[in-house]
Design a protein around this nucleic acid. Structure first.
Lengths: 194, 194, 194, 194
DNA sequence: GATGAATGAGCATTCATTCAT
DNA sequence: CATGAATGAATGCTCATTCAT
């Protein structure tokens, strides 16, 4: 655990706040250090460089994010319910941490290509969770058996991501979690007339 | 016509290439000027500043992009066919211009908040086109009449965007256009078992 | 005469105005050309370069300036009266042309050392006029015969220059010409108790 | 004391030299840094920007300048002697620091309006010292009681400034300090015949 | 003579990272 | 472990001048 290293966590938390408040490009190392209550140099005792701080921010937060979603869906009986739970928890967690929402949906995307590649690696386990739900649904017969899992996953993740980004850009003015059932309905039924 | 202003177009085209090849942050004005075959200062005869070049790149390209999609869908008889045509042309155009695909899916997203706001404005007409197709489908009875248009549009655009981004990140190794019918099927039928 | 070359004068007059209104550093060649109603390149048909425009501005204006002072003092009977007339005309001319005052007292001094050297050459005839008045006064016995002419001239010119500069920097709020008799009295009597 | 901040003084001294040697406009920050033996960025640890360096140069030097003059004149018994001491010290200090003389008389005057405004503020205390000497002389009866203090001060300062500037432009070839008694005699007696 | 589109040299400032203490 | 003073590379933009028309 990183609890032994309180400064590590202080820096991570400071980074999220500083980025959310100042934007990615105005988030200097010195600003993060100040908010964390440590010297600039101290950051380099815990992280290789600035990029490493950002990746670690995403890794730490995404770890929790995925864990909660996994917990949430494993109680559910079928793939459709799991998908709803996944959407609900996805929206819920970003709703509950406005800083995190801003950082993941807007600021971290401004980073250069290399960094975003590494961020995608961190995202990978989440995409696997989505894949599992889809595959489970196919096996259960809840979803069609001939789905292209990759495409479905891209539809699911792309939709959730777009919905959240729009919500963040509208200054988080409306209730995101309340949209979960509609989004779930849309994804499962598509545009087909019942 | 912009044929009267050949340098304007030279600079736009150079910018797309330079950004695609070097990445957003390594695309210095001097590099764009060199590729365009003009002096650095010449860029400032046609554009207010570097940001203006980038916005213009996006505006010019997106204008053509939307026009072709609009042309393509207006021949179609019903909303479902129009949606398919839209997806097909969306994929087709980005397939045919690998530089443009890289720039729109990866590089331009690294720009700072203000610039991205303006990019969103340019994107807006495209979102309106999607909305129209959805609304038309609802009126025709091809799509359910009780759809939340905003959510559907976010699903459609989010899905297309995610599919294209994944394709770009996989170095455009597979045939993107060939995915259009499957994506269309997915969006219209969702995950429902026939 | 330069009357044959109306554009020459247009450019000179435009330069004075542009410098007075925008300050020395914000007075681009293009701005002067626009105000003069000519193309940028036209300026280079009449002047070697930008510096040449500035020197010519000063030369033209200083020529008139000296001529009027010379005319004014030659009517006077003795050196002391001539000195008073010189001071009066010095103040009067700068009072009557606020643009010229700003340009000579403030803006033209921001030019680089080389240019200022040439400006000093243009100023030289005026200093000679002052010298003549002093020497005349010494011969007449109106002024002491053992004066160091150079020092006296520096006192006279330095005083006038400082008085005018202070007046310009106080936004020309008070009557400069009205100070002439007091300045004359001061220079002639000094700080001696009568 | 500024001895705790050796770099601050190194930069100030380097700036004076670089400006005197290269002229105001050719005095890049990098050149000053190099002469001071520090990195470019170090300058920004001690000064807000380049202008701040220049103002600080003038402030530091003018502070010393005024202090020495104040010390020098307070020992003197009457206003006339004080004026002589002021002139002597004014000339003496600029004679002893050829770099400072060039910078104050020529280079710093090329700065733009805003900077010159701040330079004038720094000069203000010196003008007040001159005013005090004049007022003291009027009270003592050494100078006429009906003097216009402002005008006298402008005569005194204008004369000293002009004398020093001429000396600097003549490449400091003659003995400036030796002129002090003559200048004093001129200012006190004026052009009156004894 | 007149035009004005094109040129390209030149520079203050920021900030991630290091390392002596 | 922790500090924070010092480093130095990196770049968008302006504008005097030219020259083909």
């Amino acid at each position: 655990m990183k609890n032994n290293k309180p400064k590590y966590n202080q820096i991570i938390e400071a980074a999220v706040q500083v980025i959310a408040e100042n934007g990615y490009h105005a988030s200097q190392v010195s600003k993060i250090a100040k908010k964390a209550g440590v010297a600039d140099g101290t950051i380099y005792l815990y992280f290789k460089n600035k990029e490493d701080v950002l990746i670690s921010v995403f890794t730490e937060k995404m770890g929790q994010f995925i864990n909660r979603i996994t917990e949430s869906i494993e109680k559910k009986g079928n793939a459709s319910d799991k998908l709803l739970a996944l959407i609900d928890m996805h929206f819920r967690q970003l709703s509950e941490d406005r800083y995190l929402a801003i950082v993941t949906q807007l600021e971290l995307r401004q980073s250069k290509a290399e960094l975003r590649l590494q961020i995608n690696k961190v995202l990978h386990p989440y995409l696997k969770v989505i894949d599992q739900v889809i595959e489970e649904g196919m096996q259960e017969g809840v979803f069609p058996r001939d789905l292209n899992v990759r495409l479905v996953r891209q539809m699911v993740f792309g939709t959730l991501d777009e919905v959240v980004t729009n919500w963040v850009m509208k200054d988080q003015k409306y209730n995101l979690v309340a949209q979960a059932p509609d989004v779930h309905a849309l994804l499962t039924k598509g545009l087909s007339v019942s």
